[in-house]
């Protein structure tokens, strides 16, 4: 049976969605719509275009926040990895940030920057940045010494060592740091829409909950999870494709 993995995946999906449907029909709770009702709501929102409008809103802070985090995070990570002074100065902050529940900063961000886009971008940034910085810096620090020595023995300049040895050697781990950062960014983007002001998908969720339109609420949640999972999986595929053969590892999670 060559198709065994595929068949089992479909079977597994059928079991879960079937259980959802049955649980919705009993119903286990007045606030638990069936799978089919949810899909119906999703199709409806797709057809009238409201879901696309919502995503245009939701993705704005996400994309901007991730772009800023990627740029700042990689730059800072490179610096930290290259200079022991920067390492001493900045690493502790990001190590603490990595372990800390940064979501707790949201009330302060709201006080300082209001309830608009800026705060939301900030939320995405503080969630996404630490893992990007830490992965980049440790990848740079862990470039095999023999490769750097090889370059020096062929009289490479520092710039060449950075561009031709360190960056390529570090790129798989930097990339996976980006992926983990985007994953955390999704959490931040939705958190900020639910906590700060309801916009985009957060608005659909909050609004349909307030009018007890549970199928729409579940459909919105279903769609954002689907989007995040599909996107992150594609990134992982891309990563495997780009860096096939390189040894990879995560500096942190």
């Amino acid at each position: 049976m060559q198709n065994r993995p595929l068949i089992l995946k479909l079977l597994s999906a059928a079991i879960v969605f079937g259980a959802w449907e049955i649980a919705g029909r009993i119903p286990v709770s007045y606030a638990f719509p069936t799978f089919l009702e949810t899909m119906e709501a999703l199709v409806r929102m797709t057809l009238d275009g409201s879901i696309f409008q919502a995503y245009a809103e939701t993705l704005k802070p996400l994309v901007l926040g991730v772009a800023i985090s990627a740029f700042l995070g990689i730059t800072l990570g490179l610096w930290i990895g290259l200079s022991s002074w920067f390492d001493w100065l900045f690493s502790p902050i990001f190590v603490v940030m990595q372990a800390a529940p940064l979501a707790a900063l949201i009330p302060i961000l709201v006080m300082a920057y209001g309830i608009g886009l800026t705060s939301k971008i900030f939320v995405v940034c503080i969630m996404a940045m630490p893992v990007i910085v830490l992965n980049t810096s440790s990848a740079v620090r862990n470039t095999p010494a023999s490769m750097k020595e090889m370059a020096h023995s062929f009289l490479a300049k520092d710039r060449d060592v950075l561009l031709k040895i360190i960056l390529p050697a570090a790129s798989p781990i930097i990339f996976s740091g980006l992926r983990l950062g985007i994953s955390a960014g999704f959490i931040g983007a939705i958190l900020s829409e639910l906590k700060i002001t309801p916009t985009g998908v957060g608005d659909i969720i909050t609004y349909s909950r307030s009018i007890a339109d549970y199928p729409s609420m579940y459909a919105a949640i279903f769609s954002i999870i689907l989007l995040a999972v599909v996107f992150l999986n594609l990134l992982e595929k891309l990563e495997n494709y780009l860096f096939e053969g390189n040894n990879r590892g995560y500096a942190s999670d």
Binding site: S29, A31, F32, S183, F186, I187, A189, I190, L191, L194, V201, I205, T206, R209, Y214, M217, Y218, I221, I224, I225, A228, V229, L232, N233
Partner: peptide, 15 residues
């Protein structure tokens, strides 16, 4: 593992 779990909190709240 990769889903933005924050999105599920509203569901938990209503349930």
């Amino acid at each position: 593992l990769s889903a933005p779990l924050t999105a599920l909190v509203p569901v938990l709240m209503v349930l």
